[in-house]
C-alpha cells in the first residue's frame, strides 16, 4: 500500500502542459513540478512560457519551454517529440490552452467560431491523439487531463461559441476515456467556475463594453452567484489537476470534476 506522500509523488514522470505561460496553466505547471515531474511548457507566448520555466527552476524543479500552437496538429507531434527528447518519456498531458472571447451570439462571425472551436475542442483532440500514440507505444499507460468549464454544463450568456467548445470537451473526454482505457490511459477533465486569471481580467473588460456594467458591479453579480462567495484562484484548479494525475486517482476515468465554489448549484 502506497503512503499518501508516495501517492502524490510524480518523480521520474514528465508532463506536457499547453498554455502553461500564465493563469491556470502556469499554476498547474508549478504544482506538477513541485510533485517531481519534469514539465514541458507549451504556449504561443514563448516569453510567458519562459517565465514559468524560470519559476520552476528557481524552486529546484525541471522544466523546459517550447513555442507551440495548441490548435495545430504538427505542433502536437513536435511538442510530443520534444518532451520525449528532453525527459525520455511522456506520462501526463494537460490540455489547458483555451480562449473565451466575449461575443453576442447574433454578432459571432464564422471566423471567431472557428478560432474558438479549433483551439478549445479540436486542439484537445489533436494533442490527445498525438500524445496517446506515444503513450501506447511506450505501453506504460498515462494520464490526460482536459480543461472543461462550468460553461460546458450551463450557459452564461455572450459566449455561445465557448459553451459549445467546452460542452464538446466534456463529451470528448468521456469518449476518449472509453477508447483509451484498454491502454491504461486515463482521461478526465476539470471544469472550473470563475477563476481569477489574466484571461478573465480581460474578459471583464470585454463584458463591460458589451453590457455597460462596471467591473465592480460585475464582481458583485458574480460573487452573488457563487455559494462560497468568491472567485477561485488558479492554484485551486491546479490542486485538482494534481489529484487526477496522481496515483490517488488510478480508478477514475471519464470523470469531470467541477471546481466552482458551488456556482452550478445556484
Amino acid at each position: 500500500m502506497q503512503t499518501i506522500a508516495e501517492l502524490f509523488d510524480l518523480s521520474g514522470q514528465s508532463a506536457l502542459v499547453t498554455g502553461g505561460g500564465i493563469g491556470i496553466g502556469q499554476a498547474i505547471s508549478l504544482r506538477l513540478a513541485e510533485a517531481g515531474a519534469g514539465i514541458m511548457i507549451t504556449d504561443i507566448n514563448l516569453e510567458a512560457a519562459n517565465q514559468t520555466v524560470e519559476m520552476i527552476k528557481a524552486s529546484g524543479g525541471k522544466a523546459q519551454a517550447i513555442q507551440a500552437d495548441a490548435s495545430s496538429a504538427t505542433d502536437a507531434k513536435r511538442t510530443a517529440q520534444a518532451t520525449i527528447d528532453t525527459f525520455g518519456k511522456l506520462d501526463i498531458l494537460v490540455n489547458n490552452a483555451g480562449i473565451y472571447p466575449v461575443s453576442p451570439f447574433m454578432e459571432t462571425s464564422e471566423t471567431l467560431w472557428d478560432r474558438v472551436l479549433d483551439l478549445n475542442l479540436k486542439g484537445t483532440f489533436l494533442y490527445t491523439q498525438a500524445i496517446a500514440k506515444v503513450m501506447i507505444k511506450a505501453d506504460q499507460g498515462g494520464k490526460i487531463i482536459n480543461m472543461a468549464s462550468v460553461d460546458g454544463i450551463r450557459p452564461t450568456g455572450l459566449v455561445a461559441h465557448y459553451n459549445a467548445s467546452k460542452g464538446g470537451v466534456i463529451m470528448l473526454t468521456k469518449a476518449m476515456a472509453l477508447e483509451l482505457a484498454p491502454h491504461r490511459i486515463l482521461v478526465n477533465a476539470v471544469a472550473p467556475g470563475g477563476i481569477l486569471t489574466p484571461g478573465t481580467c480581460q474578459t471583464g473588460d470585454e463584458m463591460q463594453k458589451v453590457t455597460g456594467k462596471s467591473l465592480e458591479q460585475m464582481a458583485v453579480d458574480i460573487g452573488q452567484r457563487i455559494p462560497l462567495g468568491r472567485m477561485g484562484e488558479p492554484e485551486e484548479v491546479a490542486n485538482v489537476v494534481l489529484f487526477l494525475t496522481s496515483a490517488a486517482a488510478n480508478y477514475i476515468t471519464g470523470e469531470i470534476i467541477v471546481v466552482d465554489g458551488g456556482y452550478l448549484l445556484s
Partner: peptide, 17 residues
Amino acid sequence: ADYTTGDILLVDGGYLL
C-alpha cells in the same frame, strides 16, 4: 478540494461510460 462543493466524484473505472 477547498473550492469544490456540491460535486459528485465518480470513482468507477469508467463503468458509466
